[in-house]
């Protein structure tokens, strides 16, 4: 069950060259939201928008294609998208909300729908929740440390950050590339990520990530009834080019392997919190 429940898994990329130009991989999230906006499935989406600091994401409500375009690409630093989940139904006045987030944010949203302790009138307004694969996340200061200290690159000059093929990649505006071994990035990870038992956003309507597919493509899991419906409509509208997952390299096996690695490692850490951090005491376990 490391991959969660899903109805289908495919390799896909956007058919829109403009979206692909600035996207991290297959432009799935931007394209799905753009399609859902056009089709009236959502009124707007909470996305990781730009902020006044480079590569520091800021939650943003995108209600137009232009706003979606401005928030393309991965930032590797957390964007607290759940922060806007109530506000989006209030001052923004949206009835059908799209939201993109990491697996933990998908957990937050589903908990929020079942236990809406402080989310009045929000649960029935979530129209499309897109989850992204996530191994771990970095605080913004961690990103700065990696890029500027370890990578000796000014963050303002960076065009794209990427993690893949066992390395942390820094691509600069002028075409230079710096790669750091993933090993040195580990100590900058958010501590909260180490208790996470979800790699592929099991609770999203649709989840996506680069792992499992070649460069420029993404792996898609279609999970919920809602997700299935929207995905079928998006395909019918020609928003995506797809390939069977069996036909691409490295394929679903790599996703399964990474998911298993993450969950095994974090499960072990959770157990150590109960036994190795004290005598007759344990750190708190959030899972009951």
């Amino acid at each position: 069950m490391v991959l969660g429940n899903y109805k289908q898994v495919v390799a896909a990329r956007s058919t829109d060259p403009e979206i692909l130009r600035g996207s991290q991989d297959g432009g799935i999230v931007t394209q799905l939201f753009a399609y859902a906006l056009d089709a009236g499935i959502i009124d707007g989406a909470i996305v990781a928008g730009p902020s006044d600091e480079p590569f520091k994401p800021e939650p943003m409500v995108a209600t137009t294609r232009e706003e979606l375009m401005a928030s393309r690409g991965t930032r590797y630093s957390i964007s607290p998208n759940m922060e806007l989940i109530k506000e989006v139904t209030r001052s923004y006045g949206l009835d059908k909300v799209g939201i993109v987030g990491t697996p933990c944010q998908m957990q937050a949203i589903r908990k929020g729908q079942l236990y809406p302790v402080g989310l009045r009138d929000v649960p029935d307004k979530i129209a499309l929740a897109i989850g992204i694969f996530c191994m771990e996340n970095f605080p913004y200061q961690g990103i700065l440390q990696l890029v500027e200290d370890h990578g000796a690159t000014k963050i303002d000059n960076v065009r794209k950050l990427d993690i893949g093929k066992g390395k942390f990649w820094i691509h600069t505006e002028r075409g230079a590339t710096v790669d750091l071994p993933l090993k040195i990035t580990h100590k900058y990870e958010q501590p909260g990520c180490h208790v996470c038992l979800d790699y592929v956003a099991n609770l999203a309507d649709i989840s996506t990530g680069s792992v499992g597919t070649p460069d420029g493509w993404s792996t898609i899991f279609v999970r919920s009834a809602k997700g299935d419906d929207i995905w079928a409509k998006a395909i019918a509208a020609g928003a995506f080019e797809t390939k069977p997952i069996e036909s691409v390299k490295p394929g679903i096996d790599l996703v399964t392997k990474l998911a298993t690695d993450k969950i095994t490692k974090n499960q072990k850490y959770l157990e150590s919190r109960a036994t190795e951090y004290g005598v007759g005491k344990a750190l708190r376990n959030p899972y009951i």
Partner: peptide
Amino acid sequence: QGLCMGCGSCAAACPVRAISMEYGK
């Protein structure tokens, strides 16, 4: 307790807007 991953749920839930997210926390 080393458990926060900065999702922002607390800030959304607060009825008096006492919580804001700064640098992901």
